[in-house]
């Protein structure tokens, strides 16, 4: 599909541009790459709309479709964040991540909605998927910000004010992005899980199953809940909260991809 190829190319150019700008430390290049990323997001949005019309349902149900949706959401959140704060440099993490996800999503395993399992044939299921994915996109962006935060924090702590630390955003801006992403991401993610549990009760008889996917998702949800609690109640900032963000997100990635690859689960539909 030409539209999809265009989207891929735009993501690739934006990712390379961002990485290159990190290497030469020129902010203008990063800004230009962000415009390319905006174009990629626009075309990608169009692509998703086209598929939606084709299938008559939001194209998020297969693992690969959902990855595509996730990369689009991550891009959109990044673009919004860098528009509101001075954090264009985050694109050096966000753009390659978006490109990586769309790459994987391009592997040809299109699932026809017609043969979808009963569990997914419901507005509840679609709402569950969309909420979870949007939440995951926010948490992914939070993880990007946390990684950059850790690098910048290390440079400032070691008193290395070099070209890299000058180029990276300030700790304050990074923490702001981190905070907004965690609050919105956690809210959507929680809502998504709740909808999923409701659907599970309707389809499988019980909301909770001692299933690897359920457990891992719960572990990562618990980490994020802990993180949010520490941030809101104790004002956790800095290194500790950034490290916990990354750890929680790694668990979340494991839950997302482990699906049928690393472990068997009833949460499998194709």
């Amino acid at each position: 599909m030409i539209l999809f190829a265009t989207v891929m190319v735009f993501y690739l150019v934006a990712a390379l541009g961002h990485l290159l700008s990190l290497a030469v430390k020129r902010i203008t290049l990063a800004r230009a790459s962000s415009w390319v990323l905006l174009a990629a997001a626009a075309f990608h949005g169009l692509f998703i709309a086209v598929r939606w019309i084709e299938f008559g349902a939001p194209p998020v149900v297969s693992v690969y479709d959902s990855l595509g949706f996730l990369s689009w959401a991550v891009t959109a959140i990044y673009l919004f964040a860098q528009w509101r704060t001075q954090t264009t440099v985050l694109g050096a993490v966000a753009a390659p991540a978006a490109f990586g996800m769309i790459m994987i999503s391009s592997w040809p395993t299109t699932v026809d909605v017609g043969v979808l399992s009963f569990a997914l044939k419901s507005g509840w299921a679609v709402a569950h998927i969309v909420c979870t994915l949007a939440g995951e996109a926010f948490l992914c962006m939070a993880c990007c910000a946390a990684i950059v935060y850790l690098i910048q924090d290390r440079l400032l702590k070691r008193k290395r004010l070099n070209a890299l630390s000058r180029y990276l955003p300030s700790l304050g801006d990074l923490d702001r992005v981190l905070h907004v992403c965690i609050v919105s991401g956690f809210t959507l993610f929680t809502l998504g899980i709740f909808l999923g549990l409701l659907r599970a009760r309707a389809v499988w008889g019980a909301a909770w199953h001692w299933d690897p996917k359920f457990i891992i998702v719960f572990v990562s949800w618990f980490f994020f809940a802990l993180l949010l609690h520490q941030r809101l109640a104790l004002g956790w900032k800095g290194k500790k909260s950034a490290v916990l963000t990354v750890v929680a997100f790694v668990v979340l990635i494991f839950a997302f991809f482990g699906d049928g690859i690393l472990f068997g689960t009833i949460h499998r539909f194709s």
Binding site: L156, S165, S170, L171, R176
Partner: peptide, 9 residues
């Protein structure tokens, strides 16, 4: 400069 790197604004 350092303060800006830490606090942003």
């Amino acid at each position: 400069d350092l303060a800006k790197k830490i606090f942003g604004s």
